[in-house]
Design a protein around this nucleic acid. Sequence first.
DNA 1: AGCACGCCGACT
DNA 2: GTCGGCGTGCTC
Length: 668
Amino acid sequence: MNAGGRVARVLLDSALPQLDHLFDYRVPEALLEDAHPGVRVKVPLRSAGRIADGYLIEFAEGDDYEGVLSDVDAVTSPVPVLAPEVWALARRVSDRSAGTANDVVRLAVPPRAVRVEKAWLAARGVVPSGATDAASGDSGESADGFEPAAIRGYRDGRIEAAIEAGERLALQAIPRLAELPGGAWVGEWAITLAQAAARCWASARTAILVVPDYRDQDQLAAALAVFAPAHAVARVDARQSNPERYGAFLECLSAPRIVLGNRSAIYAPAENLGLIGLWDDGDPLHSEPLSPYVHARDAALVRQEQQGAALIFAGHTRSLEVQRLVELGWVHDVAPARAIVPRIIPTAQQAPTSGFAQAARIPSTAWREAKAALENGPVLVQVARPGYAPVLACQNCKQAARCNRCEGPLGLATATATPTCGWCGAIAADWVCDNCEHTQFRLVSIGAGRTAEELGRAFPGVRVVVADGEHPLLAVAAEPALVIATRGAEPVAAGGYRAILLLDGERMLARETLRVADDCLRWWSNAAVLAAPGAPTMLVGVSGSLAQTLATWQHAAYASRELADRRELRFPPAVRLASVTGATEAVAAAVADVPQGSLVDALGPAPLPDGVVRTILRFDYAHAGAVAESLRAAVIRNATSRRRVPAGKGGYRAAPTLKVRFDDPEIL
DNA sequence: AGCACGCCGACT
DNA sequence: GTCGGCGTGCTC
């Protein structure tokens, strides 16, 4: 019945789980020339006049659809933006996380920018309405004549061989700074990854480098500028405008590249993929905050299997997830040729003797070291939260001021503004103290908190520089200055810091999450690497095995011990988790449908705000496929028969959607 | 999401 | 008889 025309299978650009499969359409004769797999198309949906966007995925062999097919309405653009390998990745990644392929495709394919696309097509010698000619264009973009540098610091040829063989590595980064020929200073890790990527690109294959944030990205970009030609590098930047993003994306489509970007770069088109490099996979920024919440590490593992590229997890610390893969033999541990250990001095919290040190509650030994180091150059002070933002407290009884509506913490956006609640946003205009009913508050510094002002007072006459989320700073000069930075926001100092103080260790460890120790170790280690050769890093107020691990730089051993503990407790990443959130009955039904025997247990349902409940499922890796499959079916069922739910006063509202999230790092 | 289909109460 | 209310289900 569908004879006379090819049948195209189309993925609709829709967020609806029930539409997350391929739809068959006939391709009219006139569109055949442009209708290639991967192009954007417009197709009718249900009734004529309603047109949906989609991607042409493939041409169907037999017609497995019984009904009458509609015609593809139009080919939006002849550019095959959804490459076959990216489609395969999106499908598998979304299936494994009970999400929709579209959620992943949206990360993989940037919005179209028509002007950019026209310029790109013209440069490739393609007439806009004509067929793409993949063999043309790209003059001057090949790696011919490019000689990559040897990858330094590891056993000769070790990493080169891994790239050649498509091996999976857990690479222990070399913990020191290095100066690039241009005079910029970067972590040695950036040079290693840049050299590895250049090596891969030299053999006409794409290398994808994924970093957690723009600060790491800038270091790696600086290293790539030295070790690879500029035209080899395509940056996928969170700060790019849409046209810029689309331009970089099209570059990846035209020839092998070195793709550098944040977590979504893992989905960049790369027909001939030779290497995936993932820096600092323990950083939670690698975890996608949107459905289906996939971690770049997991997407990288899937892609590596599908395309057979080499995969390098590089870091100063070892995530428990990667350690697990090492212990399974799936990933191979590689250490630097020569052990380099930053000089780390655990300093117990002791009574400061100096008046200056007392002002900022810095142990006197640490204060003396820092004071001496400040004669020669910059000193880094890592704090949990710097700046001048102390908390509000009751003027009378000193109790911390809390929102009278929701008990959230009150804060000041600016020095003169009326305080607002950090949770509900309510303006605390007529605030009354819970405790003593006083109505006036004042700013006070809380217990362990230290302000830049206090720290500055501890080192009189020294220039103070603050670096945090609100005052981002990538680099500082080699001149004396006290650099106060939040964990994760430390600038790189030319030549390295002459001393580093890790001040708020105790406070950071006070967070009650399962992974707090791993996170702290990562924050401290990444900061310690910023020290000049031999310069001391003082870990204040923390002792025990964590301090020992940092001082001896035995990160793999730490991860191994910690993972053994998790196995005993059946906590992640020894097991996997999935949270199911939604209406009580929907969650219960979804959990009940998970195949018998695939779960370790189900925790919950626990009530959450907005009348939804959450159940946490624990299961072994071996059963993850079955769990995901059944949860995905539950999500589709829930979306299809979306009942209404009573909402007070006899009214009705739409039932909440059923949400599934695998391996939420914030849970537990 | 939209939009059509369908099966019970008040109307010319 | 039939107009239209919204619950239910489907989209190639």
